[in-house]
Each structure stands twice: as structure tokens, then as C-alpha cells.
Design a protein around this nucleic acid. Sequence first.
RNA 1: GCGGGGAUCGCCUAGCCUGGUAGGGCGUGGGAUUGCUAAUCCCAUGUCAGCAAUGACACGGGGGUUCAAAUCCCCCUCCCCGCGCCA
Length: 415
Amino acid sequence: MIDPYIIRERPDDIRRMLQSRVVDYDLNELILCEQERRRYIADTDKLRQERNDCGKTISELKKSREDATDMINHMKRVSAELRAQESMQTANEEKYQRLIRAMPNMIHDTVPLGPDDTTNVEINRWGLTDSKPKNHVDVAGDLLDIERAAKVAGSRFYYLKDGLVRLNYAIISYALDHLLEYGYTLVQPPYMINRQSMEGAIIAEDFEDVIYKIQDKDLYMVGTSEHAMAAMHSDEIMDGHTLPVRYAGVSPCFRKEAGAHGKDQKGIFRVHQFEKVEQFVYARPEQSWVEHQRMLRISEKFYESLSIPYRTVILSSGDMGKVASKTYDIEAWMAGQSAYREIVSCSNCTDYQARRLMIRYRDRTNDKPQYLHTLNSTLVATTRTMVAIMENHQRRDGHIDVPKPLQSYMNLKII
RNA sequence: GCGGGGAUCGCCUAGCCUGGUAGGGCGUGGGAUUGCUAAUCCCAUGUCAGCAAUGACACGGGGGUUCAAAUCCCCCUCCCCGCGCCA
């Protein structure tokens, strides 16, 4: 969530942000609720103080064996009044939390303003692009069985076989080694997390469209290890000297894709499950933008090493996710479709997740704890990268050239 | 899954039986002193608001009893030990 200070002091900045994101939001309702909230807190505090004072007096009277009946009667009235006040305050607090948690993050100054993906701005382009005859489904042939997966699980599932299974695991191993070189700590997180943790990482409305819930349990399948990595240090005050903390999260990702009916039906570009190696960084506010660039560069280099042509774009305000303050996408060239398609998303969420999850840091014992910044970036999502490899490295004889760095992980040069 | 024991401010712990301002040790931060990294002493050290005085909140979570709950009652979660089952 955003800093409540901004709601009080700079509501016009919020209005501009909401407009840039093309988001419908009743800001006035939040402003009123926030004003009420401060009044409720002050009122209940005052009553609590009175009740606590009465308690002390009663205790002292009893100790000196004096009659405390009058005081107890008074305290009964105060307690009753407090209970009434508290229930109003709780109702207000719930409303406030619901409203402020639905409010998107503020937008960084360098984000291009625009309504959708047509206003994204390209900032980098790498590699030679050409068109190849087959799309990844045709290249994969028998190594990919979508029909049987549909029979067994439904649409957007897949069976991988032989060379593609080895390719999948090779990508993961290579990706982990790649991040290890940059000083990342490897983390394999829980694949299911509870609601509170999930709500810290994403906005409530996203639950419906992307997150699978476990029946009768307070557990949700992670849509990305980001969710589990963000919540990892929730309710903690981290030692400032350890920042930035850089994690390489590796996990399967499960997505409902409910809002994507009819989109990318072919093959394994958009599926309900895949593996992903993710960069997740906890940083000091003053270092987070440098860290953001660093993460992007690490991902770009990864695709360069695999000889996958790509371009990098800055997402415009209307195309960004709600928790991000700024997002870069890397789009890989898919030679079989002659198009650039999203393969990496690299976001600085500033203090937005940190506030929801209560993640702070301080340098010395007596310092005031500060919210830190969280950043996340795909290093590699295996299915989409396999699509890029199959389409860009397909051969005329129907085989696939394995990119050089993966050959030793697979013990294969050609699939 | 069954039985037993636990959860208190970073760590260790007192308080619970008998309801009435949550105390101590270690560690950490700051300072003093001593001509050396040590020792000693003082201050600070759960969270939030506040310039501050101060106030509120906090004893795993949620209910209940009570004027008043770390303390009494109920439910839940997690951890440890033993047994069972198991990749």
C-alpha cells in the first residue's frame, strides 16, 4: 500500500496516478475514511486511558483495603462506552484497510504515460531477427503432447518428453548458476502460501483471475515464487547492513489465466503451470533504482548468452501491474511467429509490498525502522524460453540446436 | 493420525496455581573513565503516534468470563518429544 501521508498531503498526485493508470477508484471515500480513522483512534485512545487510570485506582484502593465500589461502577460505565467505541473503530479500520489496499502504487517519474501496451517505450534491442518456417508446436513434434494433457487435465496443460524435459531442467540449472555468479542466494520457497502472505504480494482482485485456492485450507498455489519470497521476511525488521538481500527463487508457478480466454491457445506459451527462476531483492530505498537496472541487465545477459534476440521496453502507466512503480519487460523474438513476445518482467515495487507485509530495516538498535523496497524480475520462465529456443534455433532437418551454455547441462548439442 | 509438553520485547528466562502498571540476564547501540582491542560504570534497547511531555498497543492467533486477563475458560495455528503411517 502507499504511504498514508500522501493521501493527506498530496491527494492531487494520487488523482494523477489513478488517471495515468486508467483505474477507477473513489479517492474521496478513502480520504473521508482516513480522516474518520484518525478521529476514531484518538477517541478510543482517550477512553482506554481513562479505563487504565480507573484500573490503577481500584487496585490501589483494594491494596489499602478501602471501599472501591464507586470506582468499580464508574469503570463499568467507561468500559461499556469503550466497547461501543471500539466496535465503531474496528468497522472503520476494516473499511480503511480494504480501500487503501486496493489503491495502486505511485508511478515513477520516468514511466511513459499512456493507456496500454501500444504506448510502451522501447529502450534496447539485441540480436539479429529473422523468420523461420515453423512455430514451436511444429518444431516440438512428438516431444510435446498437448492433446493427451487436455484429456487428463484440460486446456493449457502439456506433457513434455525426452529432449524437452532435459531442456527444461537444463534451463533451470543454468539459470541458478547464472544468478549464483552475481551473488544471489538460492531459495526454494513453499509452493502454497496462506492468504495473508498472498495479499501482501498482490492486489485482492488478482486472486480471482490468477490464483488457485486449495479447498478447505487457508492455502493458495503460488503464481510465482515472488509471492512466497516477498512474504518471507514479513513482520521483520532487517539489519540494514545485510541489504541488498538478493534471492534467486526457483519454483513451479500455477496460474488460472481466467482473464485470457482465447489468447495464445497454441502450444505452451501461455499455460497453467511452468517453472521459473526469479530474482527477488530487498533493498534500501536509496539503492533500489540502481538495483532495478542491475536486475534488468542480468536478465538481458542471460538471453544474450542463449542467442535469443530480444527487445526491452518500459511499460507505460496503463500497462503496468498495480503493485509496481516501474516495470521493464524483455520481449524475446519468436522466429516462428515473427513477433516479439514477453519473456521477462522486471519491477521495482518500492515500499508498496513492504508496507503491506511490514518489512522494515534499520542500521542500529535505536534507529527508527524504515520500510525497505522490494524488487522482482523474471530471470527465466522455462516454457516461454523453450518456445524461444525452439523457434529461433530450429534447423531445416527438424532438429533444434541447443544453445551453447545449455549443452553441458544436457549433454546434448542437438535435440 | 494418537498421546504428552510448549509458544512472553533479537536470544535465554521470571511472572500463570492465588486476575490489578510485564521483571531480570545475554546480546546490541550510545556515552563516561582508564595512556593500548580488555575491565568497570551510566543511559538506551517490543510496536505505533508525537518535536516533546506523554499516551496507546503488545505475552502465538481468535473468542469468552470480569470493572479489570500474560494469568481463568473455549476454539485454532505452529514448534518439540514419543508412537503410528509414509516419498
